[in-house]
Every structure is written in structure tokens, then in C-alpha cells.
Amino acid sequence: MKDRYQVKVEQIKQVTPQIKAFTLSSETAVDPFGAGAHLTLHLPMGDRQYSLINNPLEMTNDYQIAVKKVSANGGSHYLHEHLEVGDSVLVSGPDNYFPVHLEAQHVIFFAAGIGITPFLSMMPYLSTLGKTFELHYAVKNVESCPFYEELLKYTEQVFFYSGSREEKKKQVREALENRKIGTHVYVCGPETFMEMVVDTTRELRFPSRVVHEERFRPAAKIRNPKPFRVTVNGGDELLVKENESLLERLLDEGYPVSYACRMGICGSCEVTVCGGEVIHSDTFLTEKEKENKMLSCVSRGVGEIAINVVETNSM
């Protein structure tokens, strides 16, 4: 996965009055991606993530995203009002927290509104692989819904829901009833919609591992790191400054802490926490492990903490 790099806006298409689709390309080869993947755009107002909507197997060195204008001064407003063909955008990724599982025998997609975007890459991908799927799409108005034309390609497999909340709930339940083994469910849309679908799968005893929601994100980077004090192995007292990590301090002091990624991913630099409050910023430790462990490369103490560093890894 590439760190930040520039792509060029090659095409902008008005999909609905509120939605624009952008084609971003590069002169050098762009990385392949999987259905359900997203790209992170680094915009003046911060980072924004958008699902890629092209077929991963037919990608020809471009990334396509669809953006709904939601607020007057956010990232979507910027993309809608200020971005023009030929402009450069700083991006990173693509990354994927919503991958398609190939062991599924049949896939049911539930989307609401702009939540359709990850399924725009999944549907053509599964079609290419010859896998069966259906889309249940909650929209305000069917004919003016996003990507209506595209969806007509799959007439037999697409079901629109446009009624009240109660009606939708009934339709979702009907769609999920009497499903066979090997069915996987993917859901993307506003929080309340996702909850409704997921709750229904629970009532109907779907194993949780076949129900996929686009929710998981890596832990956020600590925004305003503050200095903190650390007591190591009940003896040494160290001060970790705001611009350094606990790992860096420990290594400077000569503690033989193993480390590798320095990104909170690999778990090498784990230390034992004996006291104090810790802000965890890794994607490695389990909730249980966080009770008495921390990754010294990214996580930080609050005020004063006490840790144990094993002299050599006893393994």
C-alpha cells in the first residue's frame, strides 16, 4: 500500500444533483485493489475515505469514486465545488476493510443512499467470477436514485425499497428469511440502516462471521500528543516528550525493546503496563490485552504510567 502520492482528475461526472463521480488516474502504474476497497483523499480540511466503484478485474490504471455533497464546508463540498478536470489530488491506499469473501455461495447486499458505492465494485466483480448476488437498495425515490442506470444492468437481482422505516424493516426481514447455508450478507449505509439489517440477521440466527459491515477502521492517530512520565521496571523514571514515542525513549535509554513496523501493526514492541492510564493507538492488541499491555511505538500514557520491560524476550 503506497503512502501519499498524487493522482490527476481525469473525468468528473454528475451522477445525480447531489452526487458526482470522479475518475482519478496516474502516469505511473497504480496499485490493484479489491472489491469493497477505498481510497483516502488528503484534502485541505482533512482526510476523507471513499469507496472505489470500478470493477477490480477491469481496472485500467484509474480509480473511480462517487461523492455525495453532504455539508457546506466539508470534504464533499470541496470536491464538488473546487475540484476540476486536470487538478491533482493527494491520496493514499487503496486499502480494504470490506473485502468480498470468495467462499460465499450467494451474496446479499443491503445498501441505503450513497452506501451503494462499495457494491458498485462488488457487483461487476462477482459477475465476472460467475457468482450469484442480489442487491436490496433503500432509496428515497427509485428513478432518481444514484446509479439507477448502472443498476438496470442487474434488473433481476436488484430490489428497491422506498417506503417507510417500518416497511423497510419488513422488507429486510423478508429478504433475509429462509436463506441457505453459504449465504453472506454485506451492508453499507447510515448507522440506523446498518443496525436494522444486522439486528435482523441476529434474530434469524445468521452466524456473525457471514455478516459484513463497513465499519472497522484502524485506531486513530493520537492528534495532540502530550508528554508523560514513565517508571520502568519499578526503577528508572523517564519523560517521554510530546514529539517522541515511548519506544524511541526506551531505545535511547538502552532498553532492549524489539520493534519492527513502528506503526502499531506488528506487535513487536509490546510492553507490560503496571499502572496508569494509556491511550491505545494500535491495531494489534485485543481488548483483553489492552488491560495490561501497550505497544510502545504508537500508544501513549496519560500523566504518569508504570511499565515493565523484559530484559530479553524470554521466548
Partner: peptide, 9 residues
């Protein structure tokens, strides 16, 4: 027979 079984069985 196997493929006809309800999900979660």
C-alpha cells in the same frame, strides 16, 4: 441436500 440447509445450521 447439504446446499439446501438453512443458514446457521
Amino acid at each position: 441436500l447439504l446446499s439446501e440447509q438453512p443458514i446457521g445450521s
